[in-house]
């Protein structure tokens, strides 16, 4: 099975990728570039993380970059209810991930989600986010505590990279929904041109050297 790992630059996603690489799965990394709502340091961290994973597992992990801040986050923020920004952001990431995975012949998406860890990762939000795609989603960390994830990250040498200072997402609303209902999200999504955005993003995906 071949997996497209959504790699953010944080602590969790490289650990999730590591666990599946350890089991022998083929992994490609896709980073959703959130600039200008984050900074250049995120990209550098992602490069370093993928390089570290390559060193650990002794194999190439192709890294791809897809624009996300513009046009996706921008379109959501301009047109939709602010409280759903994070859930809609993730639904769009998954959509791009799915189209990208199919394009390169991969079978599933891999994320570092852990239940209840942040606002976008409540059970209801995860459900609403998952419904955006039909492709299987692999979430190896779903039941892990943060401490367990941090310990693995330290053991494999990704922790020190993940904690390099980089700007948190600046477009996150003050009160993000933690209880998103799918029907509300679908209504909000009618306000943006989803297919057009996905096509635009897909046209700008590039492979990045690590």
């Amino acid at each position: 099975m071949k997996l497209v790992a959504l790699i953010s630059g944080g602590i969790d996603s490289p650990v999730a990728a590591h666990l599946m690489l350890r089991k022998g799965y083929e992994v490609a990394a896709l980073h959703m570039d959130n600039r200008p709502f984050t900074d250049d340091a995120q990209l550098e961290k992602v490069r370093m993380l993928v390089k570290r994973l390559e060193e650990i597992h002794g194999r190439e992990i192709p890294l791809y970059l897809a624009p996300h801040g513009i046009p996706t986050q921008e379109a959501i923020a301009r047109n939709c209810s602010r409280r759903y920004q994070c859930v809609m952001c993730r639904r769009m990431m998954f959509r791009v991930g799915e189209v990208f995975a199919r394009k390169i012949g991969y079978d599933a998406l891999l994320t570092g989600e852990s239940l209840g860890q942040v606002a976008s990762q409540t059970l209801k939000n995860i459900y609403a986010e998952s419904q955006a795609i039909e492709m299987p989603m692999i979430r190896p960390l779903i039941g892990f505590d943060k401490e367990e994830i941090v310990q693995i990250a330290k053991d494999i040498g990704t922790y020190e990279i993940s904690i390099i200072p980089s700007l948190c997402c600046t477009i996150t609303p003050k009160k993000p929904s933690i209880n998103a209902r799918l029907k509300d999200i679908l209504r909000e999504e009618e306000k943006i041109r989803i297919e057009e955005i996905v096509d635009t993003v897909m046209g700008k995906v590039v492979r990045v050297e690590v």
């Binding site: 200008p36 709502f37 301009r78």
Partner: peptide
């Protein structure tokens, strides 16, 4: 002007500013 969303704007001269 990099983007202006109404509640948030990102601009740049020497430094990028939200």
């Amino acid at each position: 002007i990099i983007t202006n969303l109404g509640p948030i704007m990102v601009v740049k001269k020497d430094v990028e500013i939200t």
